[in-house]
Nucleic acid binder design. Structure first.
Lengths: 348, 348
DNA sequence: GACAAAATGTGAAACGATAAACTGAACCGT
DNA sequence: ACGGTTCAGTTTATCGTTTCACATTTTGTC
């Protein structure tokens, strides 16, 4: 009868732990002051030094901590930032989430984490759900191309993007990665080694008709005269392995595979091993994003390194600045460094 | 003048985005009903079908979503669970966090993430901070041995532990890993291969005098007649590498190294490579927790596998059940599976 | 010592939602 | 026609905090 509603899945039915904590009113009663006075005193405003001292003492005694929920209701801010990552199954996203969480914490902000699980279509829904939770801001590292009403969402909620765009939405900060240069370096590197037929594994190509990394691939390939084939690929380890097997089994298989995420490169590595192909003698392999483990796999993986810490610091910085009322610089482009390791070698 | 206080770092000074959303009152006004009526109607209670329909229509039109902050203030529940992990720098913890987040979401709960960054002393503080945010429950995967007043915290806040204990605190659920069996299988495996001198890398040994995994090592070593040396080690990749170099450089270096976390094993692997030691010919290596990448490093790492998904499902299940008022089964022990791969071989 | 201006404190109204208690109707069977 | 249930609402109180407006005292100045 009652049709499904966006109102709320189901509200708490039963209670378990009361856990009542001291309130500002308790302090007021025990000090004989008004609630208002206590509120001011706790923040060190208005009241006389003596009163402030007295209130503080009582607060400490009771172990009082202001209820952020009540504060948020009154004041608007929750002190919490939503962190939406496109795919926590991807190692790089894990690393990024880690770094951003740490950075947010250093600013006294809490992290409400949501993971779109590699499904671009989920992202907007999750973002809206975070917004509904009244986060103060949003940091989005999207995997997908952001259809739908991001514009509207970002207009209401300060949003920072990391490594991705949100369909023309007005964001308060953007951390971009210089994909063109990154891709260019990889392709030049492979070109210099004599490679001419290269398979490029990209996550879910069809989704975004004009993803920067893919455009970069096409552009640079054209410049260098390389034959690059874009292959759409699932994000996970297990997603790329079968795909790699297929590509590698071809008659005129490419001499190099360039994966637009290290996670995928690991899967390809696995596939090569199964087929008995040696890397880099039989095929060269290059990753993207340079996960910490990439120098530990065998052979160590050539990859494009971006400073995740710098990205995280910038993203959080943009958001914090905006929340503080400054609308300063709002975009940073992180430059790549190609870490050449043993997985890429000359064509034989 | 105003001495530091726990009251609140500093409260929002300036505002940036108003972002007013439709409230229940707006609906009330536009439908000519009382606020209460709308509240009931939105939940499909009491009101007549016609009214419910009318309210729903208006709510949809305005894009109304109930404010969880206001709800939390009134009703007590926030719909958010705190997830405290001991060290997000550790890959296994990353995997666990991912799984738990997904599981929480499937129950309609939000995840407030905090990372102790490998610092056991931080954990309680962070947990308290999460509690202050009024999460409905807490899931803790501690790295450390929980000094301090966890007892008090857990008494107020439903808490579930994963792979760790909280100094006698009364938890509503516990996901344990059968370390004794896990360690036993590894040591028996190594014993069967002829190893007798084994270095065991454990994270920050001194911290907990009687950690299950370490006790298991001592017990099993005694049974099998092995010479096991416990070596304390930092959690990160870069923490274990220098340590490995030291251990490996010894004159009577062990014939096998057993790392109580895959992350550390990766670092050791790196160290071996630097020293030109072959694995497993020169030295055998075994990890713990079986990270997805462990079958991809070279050589593939022998490791102890626990079902992270099962752990996550149980942990969240315990918490959700408790929140629903059921105090059922509250402990699960996850059994290990030894994944024997190429990194461990017979003594030569 | 008079009078304005600070300083210090209080009361009440928000913030947005829920829930207990109350109010009329309509409806029921006898 | 009479009490007694249900139905469909409305009033009012409440959650814990901040803040506006006002009231009272203290201080400062000439």
């Amino acid at each position: 009868m009652s049709r499904p509603t966006r109102y709320g899945e189901r509200y708490a039915e039963s209670v378990a732990t009361p856990a009542k904590r001291p309130t500002i009113r308790q302090i007021a009663e025990e000090t004989g002051l008004s609630v208002t006075a206590v509120s001011y005193a706790l923040r060190g405003e208005r009241m006389s030094a003596a009163t402030i001292e007295r209130v503080q003492a009582k607060a400490d005694e009771l172990g009082y901590i202001a209820d952020p929920v009540a504060r948020a209701l009154r004041g608007g801010r929750t002190g919490t930032v939503g962190l939406l990552v496109g795919s926590l199954a991807d190692f790089w996203h894990q690393t990024l989430a880690h770094a951003i969480q740490r950075e947010l914490r250093s600013h006294g902000l809490h992290t409400l984490l949501a993971d779109a699980d590699g499904n671009p279509a989920e992202e907007l829904v999750l973002a809206q759900r975070l917004a509904a939770q009244r986060v103060d801001g949003l940091i989005v590292a999207p995997v997908g191309p952001a259809g739908g009403s991001w514009v509207e969402l970002a207009a209401h909620l300060p949003t920072v993007t990391v490594a991705g765009q949100l369909a023309g939405a007005e964001v308060v900060g953007e951390v971009a990665f210089d994909q063109t240069t990154g891709v260019g370096e990889v392709l030049r590197h492979l070109h210099a080694l004599g490679h001419e037929r290269i398979a490029v594994l990209s996550w879910a190509v069809g989704a975004s008709p004009d993803r920067p990394s893919e455009r970069a691939v096409r552009e640079q390939a054209a410049i260098l005269g390389l034959r690059c084939e874009l292959v759409p690929c699932a994000y996970s380890l297990d997603g790329s392995r079968p795909l790699a097997l297929e590509v590698l089994a071809r008659e005129d298989r490419p001499t190099a595979i360039f994966c637009l995420s290290d996670s995928m490169a690991y899967g390809v590595l696995h596939g090569c091993r199964e087929l008995g192909l040696r890397v880099p003698e039989d095929i060269s392999l290059v990753g993207f994003d340079d996960h910490p483990l990439s120098r530990l796999v065998d052979p160590p993986l050539t990859s494009v390194n971006w400073s995740v810490d710098r990205a995280a610091r910038s993203a959080v910085g943009f958001l914090v600045d905006h929340l503080a009322g400054q609308a300063d610089e709002r975009r940073i482009v992180i430059a790549p460094t190609l870490a050449v390791r043993a997985s890429s070698g000359p064509v034989t």
